[in-house]
Simulated scan of single mutants.
Amino acid sequence: MKGIHLITNGKITKADLEQLGSFHHYFDYIHVREKTKSAAELLEVLDIIWETGIPLSKIIVNDRVDLAVMRDCAGVQLAYHSPPVNLVRERFPDIKIGKSVHSAAEARKAEADGADFVLYGHIYHSNSKQGVNPRGLKNLQDVAQTTSIPVIGVGGIKPDQVKEVLDTGANGVAMISSVWEAAEPIQVAKAYYDRFNHWKEEQHEKTV
């Protein structure tokens, strides 16, 4: 589950999803995070995603394990209010499970309970976390060093900050508003893609 994760902004529209169909290839995974939508509305979102040509094999559904399983999505992202990781792992051994964490201790527990990856943040000041101090790169590094499963940094990450996030030991970056609120989302998505792959190339060169 390493790589670039795009998270929906809670107010996704059919037009947004259709536009995403033209640049989804810049992301490894796309999280459907729509807290106010009903199960029926979320199923409609997943159907639009599929009709748009975005593989459901790269879709992660937040909270709703049932919908992720029914639509054969890549996985589910669990929060503090979601079913526990160990129960989901026990009942659905083949689905990929992500867990949102806010400390190294929570990350260790998520791994012990069977999570495949953790989402940690917020790293920088974020539009979705107004008035809440960011946790920063040092705490991200602590989380990355305390677990062997992939750690994805999220929260206020701009393209030019991708390198410093990954240099902490994190395995990926996630973003929300920087893409959805951009005047040119395709160009922003490509910027994340280019920065991430440039970092990967640098790491490869260091090992050869």
Rank of each mutant, 00 (worst) to 15 (best):
153 G>Y: 00
162 V>F: 05
145 Q>C: 09
157 I>F: 01
158 K>C: 00
147 T>E: 00
145 Q>M: 05
139 N>Y: 01
174 A>E: 10
143 V>W: 06
137 L>D: 13
136 G>W: 14
161 Q>T: 04
140 L>E: 03
138 K>Y: 12
160 D>W: 14
158 K>D: 05
148 S>A: 09
132 V>K: 00
151 V>S: 00
152 I>Y: 06
166 L>R: 13
134 P>F: 10
163 K>G: 02
166 L>G: 00
177 S>H: 02
139 N>E: 15
144 A>P: 04
172 G>A: 03
137 L>Q: 03
132 V>G: 01
153 G>A: 13
148 S>H: 12
165 V>S: 12
133 N>K: 11
155 G>Y: 10
166 L>C: 11
155 G>T: 12
134 P>K: 05
169 G>I: 07
150 P>D: 04
147 T>M: 00
129 K>Y: 01
146 T>P: 08
158 K>R: 07
145 Q>D: 10
144 A>G: 03
142 D>W: 03
133 N>D: 12
173 V>K: 05
156 G>K: 09
161 Q>Y: 07
150 P>T: 09
156 G>P: 07
171 N>Q: 15
132 V>Q: 01
144 A>T: 06
129 K>M: 10
147 T>K: 04
158 K>M: 10
176 I>G: 11
167 D>E: 14
169 G>M: 09
170 A>S: 11
172 G>Y: 13
156 G>L: 04
157 I>H: 02
145 Q>V: 09
154 V>G: 13
137 L>Y: 01
166 L>D: 11
169 G>C: 08
171 N>E: 09
157 I>A: 02
132 V>F: 00
140 L>D: 01
157 I>E: 03
167 D>K: 05
136 G>P: 07
174 A>Q: 01
133 N>Y: 08
154 V>Y: 06
177 S>M: 09
134 P>Q: 13
158 K>P: 01
175 M>W: 10
169 G>Q: 06
145 Q>E: 15
144 A>M: 05
175 M>Q: 09
149 I>V: 04
169 G>V: 06
173 V>F: 11
163 K>D: 13
171 N>P: 04
